[in-house]
Amino acid sequence: MDIERLLAGPGDRTAALATSHGLGAADAAVRVAEAERIHEERDDLAGKLTRRWGAPEHIGLQTVRLRTASEQIPAPWAELSLRVGDVYLWQVAEHGRWVALGVADLDPDDEIELLLVVTETDPP
């Protein structure tokens, strides 16, 4: 993963760093095991990013998700809140960016993904 490339240039970027395969219709126990594995990958990567940028905030996105029904939530936060329950969040001041790391596992019909989001937009 080339984080410097994701941090460069304007706009938002979302990278799927790991993705399950064929779990949309999988047995619930298989899905749970895969979700646990991807959450472990998230925690391992969070440790590496913490060594680089310091301790992250750990924020839940449920409130943001609920607010999308009545408010205009900016990208990429609105979409992220519909897919991810919580994120580790770093403000990378030298790049003027936010970096969010979370697991997209809210929709049982979708694949599970480890997502890294880079944005200039402050979290809501």
Rank of each mutant, 00 (worst) to 15 (best):
S20T: 12
A35I: 06
G47P: 03
W98H: 15
I73S: 00
A18M: 06
T121G: 03
G60I: 01
E34F: 02
A75P: 07
P76W: 07
I38T: 07
V92H: 02
D122N: 13
I3M: 13
H21K: 14
D27K: 05
P108C: 01
E4D: 15
L61W: 00
A16S: 14
S70Q: 07
G47L: 05
T63D: 05
A18Y: 10
L17P: 03
A18G: 08
V118L: 08
P108T: 06
R5D: 14
R52S: 13
D43P: 00
W77S: 01
S20F: 01
M1R: 15
K48S: 12
Q91V: 14
L45H: 02
V84E: 00
M1K: 13
Q72A: 14
G96K: 00
D2L: 10
T19S: 15
D86Q: 08
A28R: 10
Y88D: 12
G24R: 07
R52Q: 15
L106P: 06
L45P: 00
R52F: 05
V64F: 01
L80H: 01
E41T: 11
K48G: 07
T63S: 07
G9F: 09
L80Q: 01
D44C: 09
H39P: 00
G85F: 04
T121E: 10
W77E: 12
A93S: 14
L45F: 08
P10L: 12
V64S: 04
E71A: 14
L89Q: 09
A16D: 12
A15K: 13
V92E: 08
L7A: 06
D122A: 15
D12E: 12
R65Y: 02
E120M: 10
L23M: 13
E113P: 05
D105W: 02
A104K: 03
T63F: 05
M1V: 14
L114H: 03
A35H: 13
R13I: 13
H21P: 04
D43H: 02
T119V: 04
D86R: 05
D110S: 14
E79W: 10
H39V: 15
R67N: 09
D122K: 05
D105Y: 05
L23T: 10
Q91Y: 15
V117D: 03
V32G: 04
D107P: 06
A25W: 10
Y88S: 12
P108E: 10
Q62S: 07
L7T: 07
L7Y: 02
Q72I: 09
T68N: 02
G11K: 06
L115M: 13
Q91E: 12
E4Y: 09
A28H: 05
R67F: 04
E111R: 14
L89E: 07
L101H: 07
A104Q: 04
L61N: 00
Y88V: 05
A26N: 07
I38M: 08
S20L: 10
E40A: 15
T63N: 11
V92P: 05
E40W: 10
A26Y: 07
Y88L: 06
T14Y: 01
A100S: 09
T14E: 15
E120P: 03
P76C: 02
R31N: 00
G24T: 03
G102Y: 00
R13K: 15
P124N: 03
A100M: 05
L49D: 01
T14A: 14
D44M: 12
L49Q: 03
A35W: 01
A8L: 10
P10H: 13
